[in-house]
Simulated assay, not measured.
Amino acid sequence: MNLDNKYKKNTLLIHGGQVGNNPEKALNPPIFQTSTFVFDSIEDVAKVMNFESDDYVYTRGNNPTLRLFENKMAVLEEGVGSVAFASGMAAVSSVLFSLLKPGDEVIGNSTLYGSTYNVIKNLLPQYGVKSKLIDLTNLELLENSISENTKVIYFETPSNPNLNIIDIKGVCEIAKEKNIKVVVDNTFATPYFQRPLLLGADVVVHSATKYISGHGDVVGGVAIAKKLDYVHKLKFDYMCEFGGVMSPFNAWLLLRGLKTLGVRMREHEKNALLLAKYLEKHPKVKNVYYPGLPSFKGHNIAKSQMEGFGGIIAFEVEGGLEAAKKVVNGVKLMKLAVSLGDCETLIELPAAMTHLGYPTEKLKEFGLTESMIRISVGLEDIEDIIEDIENALR
């Protein structure tokens, strides 16, 4: 029985995307840890190759475990289909290459994850694709920046690491008038808190490594879209040919992670809001960036397009870079690490770690500073998290 149109999101996190019972009536789906599938006859081969059959050929093209993960992500984001990738950046780069050709232009938000910034700013221009990075919170600036060659608008919301909130619906309304595709990185919010396709976006991408996994033991990515022909193009012309295939074991781990996504996101958000409120009142902290704070610039837009504010906060301390270094070096419970979305609380200096590719002299232009600290707030007791940062600030 297909449950996808019947139940709400917490139920779909556990049951969505699955039709019928698992093999041998197992409660959990098996891992189809195989590279190759066999055929009964050459006639069966022809049916599969012509998409007249749902059978499998080779895991780089499809696999039952991968298919279940892709189906579930499509259900959660309310798309028609999705494509799993070996990493978040495999998803991001494949989507961009699939939508752009030499002579085209992509407009990206000025604040992006460091590797995404490098792809848009430095890699795509080597293939004849022009790029502009602008402040997409300014819709008037966006309208004035679009050229006849603009084919894609790409952004994260909330953005990494300063949590800027971009009006998805507003951007999409501008884009649709000019037949421009909109791609949204939904990693920070997850489909539990935000569904960009319902607000007009064409493609949603995730680093599944983060909250979808939730346990720091998987690297993966996924892209979800509204049109089935595009999903097929992305899978067979780009994922398969570039070779960024997810392993069946990683897909199985992500399916396991999705079961608890709702519970985890609610707790991440609860802890993040309490920590943000604490930091906002601390005399040694000068700026706190968290969409759940009424003082945050994008708070009202976040309330209108999100069902929760997420588990990431950023802040700056008095004393600049040296003071920030003392804070991240001074924590004991938190772990100094890249990545986010794990059960453990992770702390980092983006300009020295995840966003190292940004030129230092232009950090302010991109909404960053050398001393900005990012915390992925984990699931520990909030009293322990606050005590840890309090000791480090002291």
Score class of each variant (00 low, 15 high):
350 P>G: 11
394 R>D: 13
267 E>I: 09
128 G>D: 01
56 Y>Q: 13
273 L>T: 02
14 I>N: 11
268 H>S: 03
245 V>G: 03
339 S>C: 14
242 F>V: 02
9 K>E: 10
308 G>E: 08
78 E>M: 14
80 V>H: 05
10 N>H: 15
383 E>A: 15
89 M>Y: 14
120 I>E: 00
208 A>F: 12
51 F>C: 08
85 F>L: 05
380 E>C: 00
41 S>W: 03
6 K>W: 09
326 K>R: 15
140 E>D: 14
200 G>Q: 07
308 G>T: 03
180 I>M: 01
391 N>P: 02
164 N>A: 15
60 R>W: 15
382 I>G: 02
78 E>H: 15
187 T>V: 12
77 E>S: 04
251 A>C: 13
283 P>W: 04
291 P>H: 07
90 A>L: 08
55 D>W: 13
286 K>M: 00
27 L>C: 01
5 N>C: 02
144 N>W: 00
149 N>V: 04
176 K>Y: 03
169 K>E: 15
45 V>W: 10
215 H>N: 08
4 D>G: 05
219 V>C: 08
35 S>H: 12
352 A>W: 10
215 H>K: 12
216 G>F: 03
4 D>T: 11
39 F>L: 11
196 P>Q: 05
142 L>F: 02
299 H>Y: 06
273 L>Q: 02
179 N>V: 00
317 V>T: 10
134 I>M: 06
283 P>E: 08
271 N>I: 10
119 V>H: 05
276 A>D: 01
364 K>Y: 04
170 G>C: 11
110 S>E: 01
325 K>V: 13
22 N>G: 03
339 S>P: 13
257 G>E: 02
352 A>C: 06
3 L>A: 06
255 L>V: 05
339 S>F: 13
392 A>D: 03
191 P>Q: 06
19 V>N: 11
229 D>Y: 06
186 N>C: 09
215 H>S: 09
235 K>Q: 14
250 N>R: 04
130 K>P: 01
343 C>T: 15
104 D>K: 11
110 S>R: 00
209 T>I: 04
152 V>L: 03
309 F>Y: 12
185 D>E: 10
333 L>A: 06
226 K>S: 05
208 A>T: 12
85 F>P: 03
2 N>T: 12
246 M>R: 00
202 D>I: 04
247 S>Y: 01
351 A>R: 11
340 L>K: 14
378 G>P: 02
136 L>H: 05
333 L>G: 11
294 P>W: 05
220 G>K: 06
38 V>P: 00
375 I>C: 07
76 L>D: 03
97 F>P: 01
221 G>D: 06
18 Q>S: 07
205 V>G: 04
346 L>V: 08
18 Q>A: 14
92 V>Y: 10
66 L>A: 07
254 L>T: 09
288 V>F: 05
205 V>F: 04
287 N>K: 11
52 E>C: 07
33 Q>A: 13
240 C>Y: 07
213 S>G: 13
13 L>V: 09
223 A>L: 01
73 M>P: 06
335 K>F: 14
263 V>D: 10
282 H>I: 08
334 M>E: 12
37 F>Y: 15
226 K>Y: 00
114 G>D: 01
319 G>W: 14
37 F>S: 04
11 T>M: 14
56 Y>E: 12
187 T>M: 11
105 E>C: 04
228 L>T: 00
139 L>E: 09
83 V>I: 07
102 P>Y: 07
